[in-house]
Amino acid sequence: MPQTDNQTAAAPGAGEGYNFAYLDEQTKRMIRRCILKAVAVPGYQVPFGGREMPLPYGWGTGGMQVTASIIGLDDTLKVIDQGADDTTNAVNIRRFFARTAQVGTTEVTEEASIIQTRHRVPEDPMTEDQILVYQVPQPEPLRTLEPREIECRKMHAYKEYGLMQVSLYEDIARFGEIATSYSYPVMVNERYLMSPTPIPKFDNPKMDDFPALQLFGAGREKRIYAIPPYTKVKSLDFDDHPFRVQQWEEDCALCGAEETFLDEVILDDSGGKMYVCSDSHFCGRRRAEGHVGQLPDTAAAAYAAAVGAQEAPDGDAAQAQGEGET
């Protein structure tokens, strides 16, 4: 049994007359059937009878339904939003499952059996024993080019993706490069064009040949899709304008990491800024291991102190930071 966060597991309100993980078993079965279909046809969007969830549409209802359908008592759940465990929406969804499913939760990537995410793939590698569940606001990668659902489904069915390539051509003609920095479209298993959800294109290469099962749930649009482990995922590009990820000249100011996705933090109103890892667990672990970044000045030091102070009373964060010592 992996180490779990007992504080949230014992949260008040557990049970409350709702079924385990909120959804009734019939619904979960239906969703699991859709997930199986999605795994069998990688990248294909399977329509499913999405239910109303007690969180608003657009806030992760699709990911929550997928998580609710696959989660069991033995599971340990990690929830991240923008790479961080302690953003309000991540906290809220983690609370929801701690309350309705009484499962253990964690902030440690390697301890989680299920990670539900919005907008990031964790920096730490994942394994075959884990499942990554993405929250999907808009599953249809062709939607910005073709608003009609019927036509989009035909384009997928007939593998007519020339129009998508035209939009990349237009970017290069206009800007000299492909000007898509997130939701960067990918081909899955050389067959279906797929939206990787609004993760930064920085994370796209991680999806390729990924050991963990990747599941995608779009609640409002009522679609589920999947990438089975070790599937080929290719970001669209041109032979002479190959796909490239973002790079920073700076390193993480807190932990000194050189190859992570960095958030820009504004330090003052005169343009002062620094960069820190967007993956809060990854960054915290490195700091606990003794890695130190180049804090630019006293303002940044104050920021670091504030983050530490902010997180101290919060069991999750304190645990994450102290994890390296245990």
Binding site: Y161, G162, L163, V166, Y169, A173, F238, D239, H241
Partner: peptide, 16 residues
């Protein structure tokens, strides 16, 4: 250019 190139891309051209 994109209008003319569309058919080529539709049949698999991938060299800008």
């Amino acid at each position: 250019g994109g209008n003319v190139g569309e058919r080529l891309m539709a049949v698999g051209a991938r060299h800008y």
